[in-house]
């Protein structure tokens, strides 16, 4: 029983972090209808940078998020303004191919600059745990979880309470109507892309402590994050939260009772099972398509 509770607790902690990582992806998809395959590469890029700052300057990897988040936001904005915007209005598959290309460029860049080997930031609390009864809560997981929840909360407030957030949500629901009421489509899209990328800033910094990584790990990550988004329903933020929790639980439970090597596979099987019953994902809505 204690083992089960332990696994579930860990699953929730990991799920929260996954939720943060997937939220950027789902935000970008919701507003821009772009599947940002480069989101995984963003995470690894930030993780590498965080790792370097920790090694070279001694900045705490999780606190490094205060530096990496604005940097990633800026990178996302620049990428949108100068690269992604050029394929606006083209078939959605072009955006998949473009962001796939960006992911490869980042992977290749990291390969050339840092070499093709595993890295991991190991601050002092890396192997310590909080103890609650019988349950061990690794400090790094807890800090990562708290950071993720905080950022998700801020993201939620930005989206629901600010003019910018309303503009983003309006654009995601009906771009042409949003443009008609004075919301600049391009600048809103750039903002959404920047916000989505910024979330990879926090996510990547947390990742650097929790998981060993190397340049090509981004495939693993993007495939997990996309799985979360598909499971929850494309473009749905609550869906991404639930999908992330399912992934976290599937991973820790399989690792506890089956074996670590099967955990990702089990998650993919869960996705397939869900899609079999609900082809649009858990929270995906099918809207009318005739009045587009």
């Amino acid at each position: 029983m204690a083992q089960f509770v332990q696994a579930v607790t860990l699953g929730v902690l990991i799920g929260g972090i996954y939720a943060l990582m997937a939220s950027g992806l789902t935000l970008i998809f919701g507003v821009l209808r772009i599947i940002n395959i480069a989101q995984g590469a963003f995470l690894i890029l930030v993780a590498t940078f965080t790792w370097w700052m920790w090694r070279a300057i001694g900045i705490d990897p999780i606190l490094a998020a205060f530096i990496t988040t604005p940097l990633m936001g800026a990178l996302g904005w620049v990428l949108y303004r100068f690269v992604v915007v050029r394929i606006r209005g083209q078939a959605p598959s072009m955006s998949v191919l473009l962001t796939f290309g960006i992911a490869l460029v980042i992977e290749g860049f990291l390969n050339v600059v840092t070499g093709n080997r595993f890295k991991s930031a190991t601050p002092s609390y890396f192997e310590e745990s909080f103890r609650v009864g019988d349950i061990l809560l690794p400090k790094a997981q807890v800090y990562g979880f708290l950071a993720a929840v905080a950022v998700l909360g801020v993201l939620y407030l930005v989206l629901t309470r600010t003019w910018t957030g309303r503009a983003i949500r309006a654009t995601s629901q009906n771009p042409s109507a949003a443009a008609l009421v004075g919301i600049g489509a391009t600048s809103t899209a750039a903002l959404a892309f920047a916000l989505g990328s910024a979330s990879a800033g926090v996510g990547g910094s947390i990742l650097s402590v929790l998981y060993p990584f190397f340049p090509a790990s981004h495939y693993d990550w993007i495939s997990r994050l996309l799985g979360i988004v598909v499971l929850g329903g494309m473009g749905s933020l609550p869906g991404a939260l639930v999908g992330a929790l399912v992934l976290g639980l599937a991973e820790t439970l399989t690792a506890t009772y089956g074996g670590l090597q099967w955990s990702t596979l089990v998650f993919y099987l869960v996705i397939m099972a869900v899609l079999l019953v609900r082809p649009q994902g858990l929270f995906g809505a099918r809207l009318r398509e005739d009045a587009a």
Binding site: L97, L98, G101, L104, V105, G108, V112, N116
Partner: peptide, 21 residues
């Protein structure tokens, strides 16, 4: 090595999507 190959292929992919879709 393979590392530079990924970078080159990525750059080509981006360029093709943008300029020769």
């Amino acid at each position: 090595n393979t590392q530079t190959r990924v970078l080159i292929l990525g750059l080509i992919l981006v360029a093709v999507v943008l300029f020769l879709p």
